[in-house]
Design a binder for these strands. Sequence first.
DNA 1: CAGTGAGCGAGCTTCCGCTTGACTT
Length: 647
Amino acid sequence: MSKKSLVIVESPTKAKTIKGFLAGSFKIISSMGHIIDLPKNKLGVDIERGFIPTYKVIKGREKIAQKIKKEAKDASKVFLATDPDREGEAIAWHIKNLVDVKDSKKEFLRVVFHEITKSAIKEAFSHPSSLDLRKVEAQQARRILDRIVGYFLSPFLWRKVCRGLSAGRVQSVALKFIVDREKEIQEFIPQKYYLLEAIFEREGLRFKARLVKEKNKKITLEDKEKAEEIKDLILGKEFLVSKVKKTVSLRKPQPPFITSSLQQEGFRQFKYSSSKTMLIAQRLYEGIEVKEEGLTGLITYMRTDSFHVSPLAKKQAKTFIEENYSKDYLAEKEYQFKSKGIIQAAHEAIRPTNIERVPEKIEESLSKEEFSLYSLIWKRFLACFMKEAQIENTQINLNFEDYTFLATGNRILFDGFLKIYPEKVKEEPLPDLKEGELLKCVEVKLQEKETQPPPRFNDASLVRTLEEKGIGRPSTYASIIYTLARRNYVRRQKGSFIPTDLGIKVTELLNEFFPNILDEKFTAKMEEALDYVEKGEILWVKVLEGFYPQFKENIESAEKKVKKTVELAGRICDKCGKEMVIRYSKKGKFISCSDYPRCKNAYPLTTGVKCPQCKEGELVERRNRRGQLFYGCSRFPKCRYTTSKLP
DNA sequence: CAGTGAGCGAGCTTCCGCTTGACTT
């Protein structure tokens, strides 16, 4: 009786695909990610004895664990085909430990592939290797460090601020970005300046030039009187065309989508939140009922940080361009796209599984949102193999006395990839002028402007920043945002994140006592150390030994120095006569009697603005079911006045 | 776009990173 071979992968979709590629008797099971982890209800790390972890089957994963055990019993070979990254290696190792019952005959083989194509998988299975224990150890160090940081800092916050709060290597830094930005915005002092534009006409074409120089020196107009003076001076005067400069620039298409860029473009183009984009992408990946094709996976895996594309897909894209857009649109050679952050390259880039599946052809089978996102992915991918766009930039200098005005124009000479990918290029035509010509200024526009503070973070810019700094992973970007909102650290206003009082308080506290963890470089340094572990240059425990003593000291000193956060409310309790204080709850600040729990008197924190309707109560910050902020009268339900903006 | 909604602290909460579930109204 021939014994079967067992193959373990992470995702069920992958299992399905691989099945078609493997001949013979292979049983394929998907683990659905990690099945073993540290226990949830306690630290699970014996720090004193050298950071020894306690591993457990994750709650809710017992069935899968049992299934794997059972199937492995009857198998002589177990192929560990989890993802080719640190986490995948750890999953494989956990599974091996789970089924390894002193059965010396059972063979555990590690197979690694970076794309799910027939050739790649055949190749991987014909050259299996063994587990890379250094990778596993690097993952273990990462996991334990995150556990220690999270499970020490969170309880610290419970004791000092409010129960139920959380902190961690990733979320606390993300929150700090948002809090720091808010401070910058508050401290920003807008500067008034004036924009002076001269308008010219030539052969029916009107164009504008803005004042840039005075006596050949850069100038910004801050003085209104001077601006008016120049305005009056130049109107109707003859200007000299002193310089005409034309350059042609080539614009390259952007790399194919990875998780972070997909989330950014999803937000930019359709205003989808990170989680919404991921939800739609997941549906496209798992498969859609397509007419005449049945259940079809339309895109490759959507949680990835790699620009890698399988050779076959490349070839098909190139052929598609030649056949549908002519050879002129095909890039002469392949672009090399460089990754920005710390990458693990376990998967391909996000692309359509078959470029022949043109969005419009399958539109009927898709919802509106699925169609939008699929079209975007399809176009972005195809654009990667198309020629650069050629754009002619024109700069014209026009002089009158001491003043130099600059007109800029753009013209698309060849659209290239812009033919399909929606990237904005403003085309502004300028007339054909020659140096030495004279032109009359027919109109002058003077605009008062203000310098703008930096913008608040939104889904797109936060994910971009996290990725650039190597903080968080493709599978977690969306959940980081969700956590910050769920803890009431930030709220969303028209897509932008604003920190709450609670979020600011927590960040200030952590930043004072744990500056290294709140430092955006902390993760980068950790990753560097993990690299050394993977190369075998240091032991995994050293990473933790290098971190923990200082951390422990910080915790102890913070514990002593920080009292439970209370501020005086500046008012006396009308029930017991003691001082009232401002406390934090998960919902935000409120006024409480300092003698709690003996006196339970409490009031909402008012804004100090009288209710315009009843003139007795004051307005109070409230939130509706969706968590959006509004103001209501403190005498509710007697007075039902509400408003979304403070009068 | 209009309209939104309480009683907060204590009840044992929390990390990051993999991956998809489905106790029915």
